[in-house]
Design a protein around this nucleic acid. Structure first.
Length: 413
RNA sequence: GGGUCGGUGGGUGAGUGGCUAAUACCACCAGACUGUAAAUCUGGCGCCUUCAAGGCUACGUAGGUUCGAAUCCUACCCGGCCCA
């Protein structure tokens, strides 16, 4: 194995903090088992999970063994990190359903990476715990003072918000997960986003205290814009990795629209491109950097949704935004039946059913502000009605603003 | 259990009987300028209604007082702090 793996990760920007850098560097000389956990707060992962996923892919590529943990157990508790107030507990059914969805998703993502992974669910062991045993065996190693001193909890207390007993336990459970995986899988490293730093260190400490062995923690930076905003927010909410929740086309569009200043960092973190190529792309002058963004969008989309979806998204984007024709098929679409068309379709209704506007009021506003287009012609009146003659090749192309397209297609599914 | 303070739109957070669909900031949307960039400027940002006029719903939940309530009263739910 190579001692330069650690350096490569550092150069690509993955390392925000490490519990023991020289120690980890040495440990990575041997094929090692590491883990990363995902809590099932939703039925899909989102952009925020991409960096740890990419890091896991790098490690796997270098011959290490990933254990991907779906938090079916910790999800029942809820991680208070970054929460300004107590999170409403999800129902057990929801957690179970989300956990299954997340398992399937990480499984698929790592098939794309062609990596050999183990997928586990911490409900397997956490639900077996006995309360008194846990308190005596594990709880004794935790200082409440220390927990309360960490950012997450202190912020909560300082702001006068509550801190539920359940929430304090989250840290113990995550630490216990690490211990469990250390024992059962020989897992010596946990990775995660920087918000997980304290939780991960708690596991490292627990392993040292109970097993007398050293394990490592490594956290990545969070994905932010140059102004420190979390990336991945869109009008529709989070940018999901599930194609049903965020279409590959929209996913692609998100990345091609990224600010210039983030191109290099994002390429290094989220794509497998070699660093020299990343640097070359990011240093393209002026407007040419758009080709770097297209590459960025392509690579990330391919990684998450596969090459076919990435190709389709790219072709669609070129057709809609470029001059070289091509198929717009990748853009989101809605079908409309001939009988509905016969009666005429009002622009307000079209905007609503396409999702380009969230309500009729919003659609009217959009029109009033001059942001509504049909077949690249601005629509001035909310009364505009479209008939069959507006369709070219059975397609009416709607646009909101400069960038958001939607196709209205004639015919049934 | 007792006392006390509080629960406002996606977020932070004003408002303490009519002038409040609700200040401000953030996020978001659109227009201008551009390169599907950033910054900047402008407008918008509950829903329904052909603009307008109007209507409906909304300030923890359910009732009540009042011509009129986010604002007052009662009960309940949730939370902070103090006491036990």
């Amino acid at each position: 194995m190579n001692s330069s793996l650690y350096q490569t990760l550092a150069d690509r920007g993955f390392i925000h903090s490490v519990s023991n850098a020289p120690g980890l560097r040495a440990a990575l000389d041997q094929p090692s088992v590491f883990y990363v956990g995902f809590d099932p707060t939703a039925p899909s992962l989102h952009t925020g999970h991409l960096i740890p996923l990419a890091l896991a892919a790098h490690l796997a590529q270098a011959g290490h063994h990933p254990v991907l943990l779906a938090g079916g157990g910790t999800g029942l508790i809820g991680d208070p990190t970054d929460r300004s107030e107590t999170r409403a507990l999800l129902s057990a059914e929801r957690v179970a359903a989300n956990t299954q969805a997340v398992r399937r998703q990480v499984d698929r993502l790592f098939q794309n990476e062609q990596a050999d992974v183990a997928i586990v669910d911490n409900a397997e062991w956490l639900t077996q715990l006995r309360y008194l045993d846990f308190l005596r065996d594990i709880g004794r190693y935790f200082s409440v003072n220390e927990i309360l001193a960490t950012e997450t909890y202190r912020a909560r207390l300082d702001s006068g918000q509550g801190l539920n007993f359940v929430e304090i336990n989250y840290r113990l459970l995550q630490a216990y997960d690490f211990l469990h995986l250390f024992r059962e899988h020989g897992c010596i490293l946990q990775i995660g986003g920087s918000d997980q730093w304290a939780n991960i260190l708690a596991g490292v400490d627990l392993i040292r205290r109970i097993e007398g062995k050293e394990a490592f923690g490594l956290v990545t930076p969070l994905l932010t814009t140059s102004t420190g905003q979390k990336m991945g927010k869109t009008a529709a909410g989070a940018l999901w990795l599930d194609p049903e929740l965020t279409s590959p086309y929209d996913f692609f569009q998100y990345w091609i629209n990224i600010e210039d200043a983030s191109v290099e960092r994002t390429l290094a973190l989220l794509t497998p491109l070699p660093l020299h190529e990343v640097r070359a792309l990011a240093s393209l002058p002026g407007a040419q950097i758009r080709s770097a963004k297209e590459r960025l969008a392509y690579e990330i989309t391919a990684r998450v949704h596969g090459a076919d979806a990435a190709n389709a998204a790219r072709d669609g984007a070129r057709a809609l935004f470029g001059r070289d024709g091509g198929s717009t098929a990748a853009a989101p679409q809605t079908r409309v039946t001939p009988d509905k068309l016969a009666a005429g379709l009002r622009i307000v209704d079209l905007l609503l059913m396409s999702g380009l506007a969230g309500s009729r009021s919003a659609a009217r506003r959009l029109i009033a502000q001059g942001g509504a287009y049909a077949n690249d012609c601005r629509v001035d009146s909310p009364d505009t009605i479209f008939h069959a003659d507006a369709f070219r090749n059975g397609e009416l192309l709607l646009r909101s603003g400069k960038k958001r397209y939607h196709r209205i297609l004639l015919g049934r599914e």
